[in-house]
Design a binder for these strands. Structure first.
Length: 275
DNA sequence: CTTTAAGCCTGCAGGC
DNA sequence: TGCCTGCAGGCTTAAA
């Protein structure tokens, strides 16, 4: 479940291994993931020098000295492996002039790879409609309050709408709402300025801390297994149904963290501290 | 316009 | 042990 912090961490790991290196070989092992991968994809990478990376929401872009950019989306199960044995479901393999081997592995194939002719990646159909970056200045309380006005779905569902704000997924939606003390069941249009004022910094802090955890845990972001970017998470409510949240006294009166399903997705929250 | 359900795909956990 | 079912989730498309 790569969300913004995981994508950011994976991207930093790729940056450390690929930027300013030459891709000496690129092999695509199937013609499609979620969508067809354009003909000539591997050829466009081969021989190119990587000039840098950029992230937008849960998408990352690898920029090449040819003027083209490569869109990479990890989907649900996508991961990057470095100098690891060829893996099952390894759909793309890159080699650099320094002898580094990078594999893109995605069993469920919800991910995507695409070629963008220029470095103007925001014109791509998959990112053109995205909302603001949650860690940017454009994402602030007045903006969010305005965007939520009139919305009738629960705030948890609204936060998953990538056109509202880009990069929040199912896990960090629950985490941010816990931090803000807001129930995931509250209707998005009914938050009011006070709760929105808490929610915006809660989102920023939650994401920033997760990125920091990824950055500090491992040198070059590479696990011993060769897997890139994942790290020990310390989720406060996600997947912790029945446990006591950190704000609750551990008393029999407290029922603990609850799991509910909203629009088909699991949400976790503490009924005692989230209104 | 907003919101929801289905579908894509595979691995894994749980039940029998 | 092994089969079967259901669930997990990001994102799009279709439909309400």
């Amino acid at each position: 479940m790569p969300e913004l912090p995981e994508v950011e961490t994976v991207m930093r790991g790729l940056d450390a291994k690929l930027t300013n290196r030459v891709i000496t070989a690129a092999s695509l092992n199937r013609p499609d993931l979620r969508w067809p991968i354009p003909a000539g994809f591997a050829a466009a990478l081969t021989g190119a020098t990587v000039t840098g990376f950029r992230r937008r929401g849960k998408y990352m872009f690898m920029r090449l000295n040819t003027g083209a950019s490569v869109l990479i989306h990890l989907g649900m199960s996508g991961r990057m492996i470095i100098d690891a044995p060829f893996a099952l479901h390894e759909h793309l393999t890159l080699e650099t002039n320094e002898g580094c081997r990078i594999g893109f592995v995605d069993p469920r194939r919800f991910g995507a790879l695409d070629l963008i002719a220029t470095n103007d990646e925001d014109t791509h159909r998959l990112v053109a409609g995205l909302g603001p970056e949650p860690l940017g200045n454009e994402f602030n309380a007045p903006m969010l309050l305005e965007a939520l006005t009139g919305r009738k779905n629960p705030i948890k569902a609204a936060l998953l709408d990538q056109t509202l704000v880009a990069g929040i997924g199912n896990i960090y939606a629950s985490e941010a709402l816990f931090r803000a003390g807001i129930s995931p069941r509250r209707l998005a249009g009914q938050l009011g300025a006070k709760r929105v004022d808490r929610l915006v910094p809660a989102i920023k802090t939650t994401l920033t801390e997760a990125i920091a955890a990824g950055g500090s845990s491992l040198r070059d972001y590479v696990q011993p297994s060769g897997e890139l970017g994942y790290f020990q998470h310390a989720w406060k409510v996600y997947d912790r149904a029945g446990e006591f949240c950190e704000r609750c006294p551990q008393l029999p009166a407290c029922s603990g963290i609850r799991r509910i399903v909203q629009t088909g997705r699991a949400s976790f929250y503490c009924p005692q501290t989230q209104g």
